[in-house]
Simulated scan of single mutants.
Amino acid sequence: MSALLVALGAAVGAPVRFLVDLELKHRLGAAFPWATLLVNTVGSLILGALMALPLSPGATALLGTGLCGALTTYSTFAYETVQLTRAGSRGRALLYVLANLCLGLGSAWLGLTVTALLFG
């Protein structure tokens, strides 16, 4: 049952990531990977908030592993960092790495803290 719940959550998270990527590349261009930074930040915020709630294992599988796992992407983050570096944009690559780490960790902490204050 958990695998089905993970798949259902992923069936929402992955298309959202894809659509965000299309929209931001259309609006902002492809010089910087804004979409991956955004979905990683938002996914970390959501996962942080979920950590503060007393969820059932099924809800955790659906929302945490499935939705957030498919919405966020470490592999694309790594790929885009390498591509920026190969293109000679070492400064952008470093900014991208630092932004993903700081925004991801900060968002997870913020989601956890705010949710715990509101519902804890």
Rank of each mutant, 00 (worst) to 15 (best):
A3G: 01
L5E: 00
L5A: 10
V6Y: 05
A7G: 13
G9P: 10
A10G: 14
V12C: 12
V16L: 15
R17P: 08
R17T: 10
V20K: 10
E23C: 12
E23K: 12
K25P: 03
K25R: 14
H26G: 12
R27G: 05
R27E: 08
L28T: 11
A30F: 05
A30W: 07
F32A: 04
P33H: 03
P33Q: 02
P33Y: 07
W34P: 09
W34S: 12
W34N: 09
W34H: 15
T36Y: 08
L38E: 02
N40V: 02
N40C: 08
G43D: 05
L45V: 08
I46S: 04
I46W: 11
L50F: 07
L50R: 00
M51P: 00
M51C: 12
L53D: 04
L55H: 05
L55I: 01
L55E: 01
S56N: 00
L62Y: 04
L63A: 06
T65V: 15
T65R: 03
C68H: 12
G69E: 05
A70F: 10
A70Y: 09
S75P: 08
T76F: 02
F77Y: 15
F77G: 00
A78I: 12
A78M: 15
Y79P: 02
Y79L: 14
Y79W: 14
E80K: 09
V82F: 13
Q83V: 14
L84C: 00
T85W: 14
R86D: 13
R86H: 12
A87C: 05
S89W: 13
S89Q: 14
R92T: 10
L94Y: 00
L95M: 12
L103H: 02
G104E: 04
S107G: 13
S107Q: 03
A108T: 10
A108E: 01
W109M: 11
W109A: 15
L110K: 05
G111D: 02
L118V: 11
